[in-house]
Nucleic acid binder design. Structure first.
Lengths: 193, 193
DNA sequence: GTAAATATTTAACAAATGTTAAATGGTTTT
DNA sequence: AAAACCATTTAACATTTGTTAAATATTTAC
């Protein structure tokens, strides 16, 4: 039983790696275990690592007029960091926090840069994963433009049933771009088609 | 006067290239001139090229219940393609169309892949530009969650005054995620602060 | 097991945006 | 200049979501 099984399955969707490249990665990552509500990256800190969520759900939010605005809930087996801060190495305005107990595979920026510079296939992986994340992000913009909150909620239920089960409704509402009370009302009056 | 001046200025923000790498790119791009309302990539076609908008504005939209949903208006000096189709080389569900007369620098997917495979710095550029596009996309998601349409419109006015001048309000409204009539109403009742 | 804390629901009213339909204003074509 | 074609505005009414405040329900800590 390989601890890296989830991560490797995910990675191999994008690039076929040789064994030494995989080893180089394994030598440079750290495992990080977060309890529910523990913080991965705090607002004001510099995002020095990026994480792969091997287990659990993270929430990305920032403070807007004293209110936490949830921008993202990371699906299982995906990457998470405060990217603007990670790229620029300036303080982050976003906070990333564990919604459930989490098991993260993290890599420091300098180690990732080392992989990028040393192994062209890792740089290629970086490009492809970013393309994918961008496309997904665009899909979400379409959803905001064309779908009502009810439709967005139904799709979330359909695509991420586990997530809905484990994540409090406040955060789901934030992710959908509506208030908790609106989500609650919408759940009551929903026709299930 | 270098025809590539805009493009090179843009590119050099992300990676410092050597002359041969720039030449390799110049040898593989094509210039494409579109008149207002001409189509760059049609729904159902495969996106075989990606474009840099040297002049003019492109609009990305798709048909939703017989209605054109504008997902993006590309700023000057940025990249545009139907990325899901470009990546997968499957038919595009999005159409990209010239809002104004356009001057595009285009490169075919296979030529871009050649640059990526041959020059690590081009692959690095590909990754960095994708990171940037992803971050910008996330910013827009925040805007949908936290800002009213009026605030989004004011920011657009502030950041892209030229765009507002050249692009019809229908498309602006679509980009903001509201209907033309709502934008019109909002413009009338706006307090200019 | 009980108290405290947190999550979710409910409701009445307010604000923002959508829908439909028509009027007005500009441009382009002939 | 008139006709035809766009783009934009206006208005009345409908729907969706926000706001405020409270009531329930569920979970966590002691």
């Amino acid at each position: 039983m390989d601890k890296f099984r989830n991560a490797l399955n995910f990675i191999k969707q994008y690039v076929d790696f040789e064994e030494p490249e995989i080893q180089a990665m394994k030598n440079r990552v750290q495992w990080l275990y977060l309890k529910k509500n523990e913080v991965f990256i705090n607002q004001g800190d510099i995002a020095r690592t990026i994480a792969f969520t091997n287990k659990g759900y993270l929430r990305v939010y920032y403070l807007h007029d004293g209110e936490e605005i949830t921008r993202d809930i990371t699906p299982l087996h995906s990457f998470a960091t405060a990217l603007p801060s990670f790229i620029s190495q300036k303080p982050s305005w976003e906070t990333i926090c564990a919604i459930t107990d989490c098991e993260l595979i993290t890599i420091r920026k300098e180690d990732l840069e080392y992989l990028y510079s040393t192994y062209p296939r890792w740089e290629r992986f970086g490009r492809r994963i970013m393309e994918e994340m961008f496309v997904e992000s665009q899909r979400r913009i379409y959803a905001f433009i064309t779908e009502t909150a009810e439709v967005r909620y139904k799709k979330l239920l359909k695509h991420y049933p586990d997530m809905i089960r484990e994540v409090p409704l406040t955060y789901i509402a934030g992710f959908l771009g509506i208030k908790l009370q609106s989500l609650s009302r919408l759940r009551k009056s929903m026709d299930w088609n």
